[in-house]
Design a protein around this nucleic acid. Structure first.
Lengths: 244, 244
DNA sequence: CGCGACCTTGACTAGATTCAAAAGTGGTGG
DNA sequence: CCACCACTTTTGAATCTAGTCAAGGTCGCG
């Protein structure tokens, strides 16, 4: 398949994009840049003048509590708009960190303003992509509030598996997930010790393996059951949901 | 002050609205309707063809876990768009319930489509209002993952106080909050017993009283401290933040 | 008065955190 | 190639936070 601008590709997943709209999107990307692992790409309190689409690598949004504990509020995979909301929100209410070396496309807010002035259809698609982010937030709220640790971890793995599969970043039920257990713990709101034990639960039930940053789901239906996972909130197409 | 359409009022808080835009918004409301207490106004899995703005009363969005436990993911006060996201999301990923008898304005998705086709500025304001919802979700994630029960309860009270004050629904540090402790527990992800004890902690420290559905904050700085509350994420104007 | 809904309390249990230390891993420089 | 270092994962034990179960109390209302 020939090269397709990642932003165009993303929005075409969400709805139809005309030729003219596609051109506008393609010219919106000002730079493609790299960020090294563990570097903050956006800082809480700042007001960036561009938004970022992740092309390669993993990134996360996070906030801190005064005691210094960190909560990750969002994990991003290639193809995700990481901070599209900074286009309209005055100040960042959280930071964004690169989990791995990342390659990303910068879209100046100026360009977004032009696009949203001229292309209502594109505006709705961009808006929709932030609404899906919010739907993921809600599902995480449910998990942290009402699910047990092991279920929430299983749920997260299921979610990441589907999100990566849409981007063709899985082979069968295997995918790279270069996160440390500390990062996982900060995502699920658990201590690292308890997260480790939750993972062991899933491993001992032969639902998955996780070695050297590579996850293999060995029992998808079992993992879905243990994670009480229902993918509706991800708004994926049904044909993307049938087994790989 | 003369009557102002609540949707116009909401968006004018977020940015400027021209005369023509105002007319378009005013004609977008098809019906004002009432919902009795404890009735679901939107159901998970449905695809409504209108969105709802709450004019009077309290409502909440919630999801269930298979065991039947409920997690409230959002509390809404008058002036909030409760399900604006249903305009673009295909299926509701959660339900909406009326905590009290509610009065609300219905806006057909058709009208929203026309508005978003013709008024890019209004589209951005509507989009922004859903982005603030998402910012609140993120703050709740931080609270549920990394804050202690009493801090999270204090934080929620601080948030609701400010959101209600913007709508002029507070007198000094007092406001109606007609929620049961079960509803509070479902919001904070706690059991009702533990929530009750968290409330007692705040009461015994003379930070607030809560009787017959009326909250009085008796020590705002103390409550802010105990809740580790920083209102940045609400995107309110600074002049709205100075003490009442 | 009695009922139902809600709030409060006590006692016990379960889930999760903390602290501490050991074991594994990968990379670097001598 | 190996020794060393930093980082990460794993384990054990003690402790704390929050959940569960059960009962009693309060309040408003028919």
């Amino acid at each position: 398949m020939k090269y397709e601008n990642p932003i165009v590709r993303k929005l075409r997943e969400l709805g139809s994009v005309s030729g003219e709209e596609r051109l506008a999107l393609e010219s919106a990307v000002s730079t493609v840049t790299r960020i090294p692992m563990d570097r903050d790409m956006v800082s809480e309190g700042s007001h960036p003048n561009f938004s970022t689409m992740l092309i390669e690598g993993f990134a996360a949004r996070y906030k801190h509590v005064p005691s210094g504990k960190r909560q990750i509020v969002s994990i991003h995979v290639p193809g995700d708009f990481v901070d599209l909301h900074s286009f309209l929100l005055k100040r960042m209410d959280h930071s964004v960190v690169a989990f791995t070396d990342c390659r990303m496309a910068l879209v100046p807010h100026e360009r977004l303003r032009e696009i949203t002035d001229r292309f209502p259809n594109l505006t709705r698609l961009l808006w929709l992509s932030t609404l899906i982010d919010a739907a993921i937030h809600r599902e995480w709220l449910l998990g942290m509030g009402r699910r047990k640790a092991f279920a929430n971890v299983a749920h997260l793995v299921c979610e990441l598996y589907l999100r990566l599969r849409v981007m063709k970043l899985t082979q069968d039920f295997r995918f790279d997930l270069p996160l440390t257990q500390q990062e996982l713990a900060d995502t699920t709101g658990l201590s690292i010790v308890h997260l480790n034990r939750a993972l062991q639960d899933l491993r001992s039930r032969h639902l998955l393996t996780w070695e050297a940053g590579v996850v293999t789901i060995t029992d998808w239906p079992g993992l879905v059951r243990r994670g009480e996972f229902d993918p509706t909130y991800l708004q994926l197409n049904v044909d993307e949901l049938s087994p790989a």
